[in-house]
Amino acid sequence: MKIHLLLLPFALAACSPLPDAGSPVRSSMNSPDATAGAASTTGSGVLGQYHWQLKDAFDSKGMRIDALFVGAEEPVQLDFTADRLIVINSCNNMSASFSVKKGQLQLGPMMSTSMACPDAARAALDDAIAQRLRGSLGVNLLTRDNTPRMQLVTETGDMLTFTGVPTAETRFGGPGETGFLEVAAQTVPCKNPLIPDKKCLLVRERHFDEQGLPSGTPGEWRPLDQDIEGYSHTPGIRNVLRVKRYSVKNPPADGPSVAYVLDLVIESQQVGN
């Protein structure tokens, strides 16, 4: 039996509400093919409403920056909280403080963990990102074919174009409620008139104190007749998940009124071996 505890002390610390950091960034995001420089602010504003996935990157001579494209399945992604830019799908965990002033994205020093990556290209990705996400960058927001885009221009003239994917908060119209679900190692049969022999996740509620330690009594096991967005179950692996719950407005007659979105896997255990 193998047990892995992942960032458990951090599990509740990251749930604290973010402070109001200023006015939102203004842009013509609702106008087709419109571009706008960001207004002066220290808040994430419209930037925080999307996951920004890298689509194109060219240097000042028009050459594609291949070092920034390691895996097509997991493109470099930027997420903006109230006061930090977080880099997703790099080798190490990377983040920097930021503010937006007069159409410029001002970045503080890039902080990074020191994990070694066995894949040389992914290990080099961290440096390629850090070289470009620093100092002052021009930032423009635009929409094309109803898809939001963000363009960042570095001090050396590199241009990085990102496609915006709405966050869960944007899609469901609110911040959601944080909770914890334990997912049993094996799925169970559950009734569904449209899907014969359907299998469902078996889950129960879990509780943790301010130090991230288990507290209280777990809830009763129950089949969950819906997906947890972002979670892929592996038979034989028991997981404890930090999830966000969102109310679904006007759900279909046969659909759930609550959506679950994976926030973090905090515990993983192999069962039966």
Rank of each mutant, 00 (worst) to 15 (best):
M1L: 02
I3E: 00
H4N: 03
L5I: 10
L5A: 03
L5R: 14
A11L: 15
L12Y: 01
S16F: 04
D20L: 07
A21S: 11
G22K: 12
V25A: 04
V25W: 00
R26M: 12
R26K: 11
S27P: 01
N30F: 12
S31P: 01
G37Y: 12
T41Q: 03
T41N: 05
T42V: 02
T42I: 02
S44W: 03
G45I: 05
Y50D: 07
H51L: 15
W52V: 08
K55T: 10
D56P: 07
S60P: 10
A67Y: 12
G71V: 04
E74M: 10
L78I: 14
F80E: 00
I86D: 00
N89Y: 12
N92D: 04
N92G: 08
A96P: 05
F98M: 04
S99G: 14
K102H: 05
K102R: 11
Q104N: 01
Q106G: 05
Q106E: 02
S112C: 08
M115D: 01
A116D: 09
D119N: 13
R122K: 15
D126M: 09
D126R: 12
D126K: 09
D127N: 11
D127R: 14
Q131R: 14
R132V: 15
R132Q: 13
G135F: 11
S136D: 00
L142R: 11
R144T: 07
D145P: 00
N146E: 07
N146T: 12
P148Y: 10
V153C: 04
E155N: 10
G157H: 10
D158S: 11
M159E: 06
L160T: 06
F162W: 09
F162P: 08
T163M: 04
G164F: 09
T167W: 02
E169F: 03
T170E: 00
G173K: 10
G174N: 09
G176Q: 03
E177P: 06
G179T: 11
E182K: 13
Q186L: 14
T187F: 02
V188H: 11
P189L: 08
P189C: 08
K191E: 00
L194E: 01
K198L: 14
K198C: 12
K199W: 05
C200T: 12
L202K: 15
V203N: 02
R206S: 03
R206P: 11
H207Q: 04
H207A: 04
F208A: 02
Q211A: 10
Q211K: 10
R222D: 06
L224Y: 06
I228T: 14
H233V: 12
T234P: 15
T234W: 13
T234Y: 11
P235D: 04
N239W: 03
L241P: 08
L241Q: 01
R242F: 06
V243C: 05
V243P: 11
K244F: 08
S247M: 05
S247L: 08
N250E: 09
N250S: 13
A253H: 11
S257Y: 05
Y260W: 15
V261K: 13
L264C: 10
I266A: 02
S268N: 05
Q269H: 13
Q269V: 15
N273Y: 04
